[in-house]
Amino acid sequence: MAMVEALFVEGRIYDLILLVLALEGAFLWGRWRLTGRGPRPSRLIPFLLSGAALVAAARAASLEAAWPWIAGFLACAFAAHIVELHHRWRVRT
Rank of each mutant, 00 (worst) to 15 (best):
M3T: 13
V55I: 15
S42M: 06
I45Y: 05
L28E: 14
G51Q: 14
A60I: 11
R33S: 11
G25F: 07
A57D: 07
F73M: 12
F8K: 05
R92W: 12
F47G: 00
R33E: 14
S62E: 13
E24I: 10
A58F: 15
Y14L: 02
I70V: 15
W32Q: 13
A2I: 12
V9H: 04
W29C: 11
R59H: 15
W67M: 11
A79D: 01
F8V: 15
A61P: 01
G25P: 02
T93C: 06
I17D: 04
D15W: 10
L74P: 03
A66Y: 01
V9S: 11
L54D: 07
C76W: 14
A80T: 09
E5F: 08
A71D: 02
R37P: 00
A79V: 13
V4W: 12
I17V: 15
P41A: 05
W69A: 12
P39T: 04
S62C: 03
G72R: 02
P41T: 09
F73K: 00
I45T: 03
F73V: 04
P41D: 07
I82N: 00
R59T: 06
L23P: 01
A66V: 03
A66P: 00
G72A: 13
L85A: 04
R59Q: 15
I17T: 12
E24H: 08
R88A: 14
L7A: 02
W69D: 05
L74F: 08
R33Q: 13
A58E: 11
D15S: 09
V91G: 00
V91P: 00
V91E: 13
G25I: 03
R12S: 13
A61F: 12
G51V: 00
R88M: 12
